[in-house]
């Protein structure tokens, strides 16, 4: 029996990216919402709700990027230069918000500066990730083994829309996370924000989804062609169902279901992207198998991944379990 190693690795990297998007998504979202909640004590509470987990969340980004380099070096070599500006903006944003976690507690006078660094960095990183996604979806010109476009190609109305969509979506994740993790003033604010962010996210998902098939005919075939449509049609239906759960959870003032429904929205969008992309890794030009490193490289790293990724998942789950419950402004959980 031979294993289809490139396919296994594509699944692992897709998993790492999804894990990154939903995990770092809510803590970026908390940063995005920082300007909407006034009062240092309330902001302490917001930051404390993600403080124990944020950099574990961000580690998945390194795993996704590092994995892409290791396993699909050709895709890495084409995509990174194509998304040059958004990637650089994302890195700078992540650096700003990352150090803000440390530095905000080291000064009283300068605290407002690190508040801005945290919010600004989170917004920049979220928006840049959305733009990068849009730029990838709209297609990248490839010549030989390299990116063949210009360095402004990423900037289109479509990529700006995906940038806004992801920022709003992260805001929704952040708001529903805060509903789950906080009480009192912050939780009330989070409900208010979620009431706006939820319909906005659903609307933006709809816009992006309707626009995508018109970007090129390959996407249209994958979504509407026979028999693909049988596989594709459950995705938008599920989005509708989850949207209902989300809005209902919010109106009934539930604490857990809005967060889970928001996560489900992200998972469904990710599956939708998978439908559009597969079997390409660089949309419409390079397939998973063409981009893969030789099998001996894939096997060599798979041995380690097979041991370590389950371990990582286990202690990630354990950490979240221990940090269950509400947070308060002095960092305690009760």
């Amino acid at each position: 029996m031979t294993l289809d190693l490139p396919l296994i690795w594509a699944g692992l990297i897709a998993f790492a990216v999804l894990a990154y998007v939903i995990l770092d998504g809510f803590d970026l979202g908390v940063g995005i919402l920082f300007p909407l909640v006034r009062g240092e004590r309330h902001r302490d509470e917001m930051m404390n709700s993600v403080a124990p987990v944020w950099d574990g969340n961000e580690t998945w980004l390194v795993l996704g990027g590092g994995g892409l380099f290791a396993v699909f070096p050709l895709a890495f070599a084409i995509i990174m230069p194509a998304l040059y500006a958004p990637i650089m903006a994302m890195l700078l944003g992540l650096v700003f918000r990352g150090v803000a976690f440390e530095f905000r507690w080291k000064t009283r006078r300068g605290q407002f500066l690190w508040d801005w660094a945290f919010a600004g960095g989170s917004i920049l990183a979220g928006f840049a990730q959305g733009v990068a996604l849009g730029a990838l979806v709209q297609g990248i010109p490839v010549e030989g083994r390299a990116y063949a476009g210009g360095w402004w190609d990423w900037l289109t109305p479509f990529s700006l829309l995906t940038g806004v969509a992801l920022t709003v979506g992260y805001g929704l994740l952040g708001a529903t996370w805060l509903i789950l993790k906080t009480e009192g003033h912050v939780q009330r604010r989070a409900y208010d924000i979620a009431f706006i962010a939820a319909p906005a996210t659903i609307l933006l998902i709809g816009l992006v989804s309707l626009w995508t098939p018109f970007l090129n005919t390959v996407y249209a075939t994958r979504w509407f062609g026979w028999p693909h449509v049988l596989l594709a049609i459950p995705v938008p239906l599920a989005v509708l169902g989850v949207s209902y759960v989300l809005l209902r959870g919010l109106t009934e003032r539930r604490e857990l279901s809005p967060f889970l429904a928001s996560l489900a929205l992200f998972v469904l969008c990710f599956i939708g992207l998978g439908v559009s992309f597969f079997p390409h890794i660089v949309p419409n030009s390079v397939t998973i198998w063409a981009a893969a490193a030789p099998d001996n490289s894939l096997t060599f790293l798979l041995v380690g991944a097979a041991v370590l990724i389950p371990l990582i998942l286990a202690y990630t789950a354990y950490a979240y379990w221990v940090f269950r419950g509400k947070v308060n402004s002095v960092g305690g959980y009760h």
């Binding site: 580690t59 390194v62 795993l63 990027g65 590092g66 994995g67 380099f69 290791a70 396993v71 699909f72 070096p73 050709l74 890495f76 070599a77 084409i78 995509i79 990174m80 230069p81 998304l83 040059y84 990637i87 650089m88 890195l91 083994r145 390299a146 990116y147 490193a293 030789p294 490289s297 060599f300 790293l301 380690g304 991944a305 370590l308 990724i309």
Partner: peptide
Amino acid sequence: SYQIGTNWSVWSDKVGPVLGPLMGYEVLS
């Protein structure tokens, strides 16, 4: 880890199969 791709993409393509797994182990372990 991202800069090697944005600024040194040809290098990434060529050495990825050899050096990528090593860096993968760095990240993992």
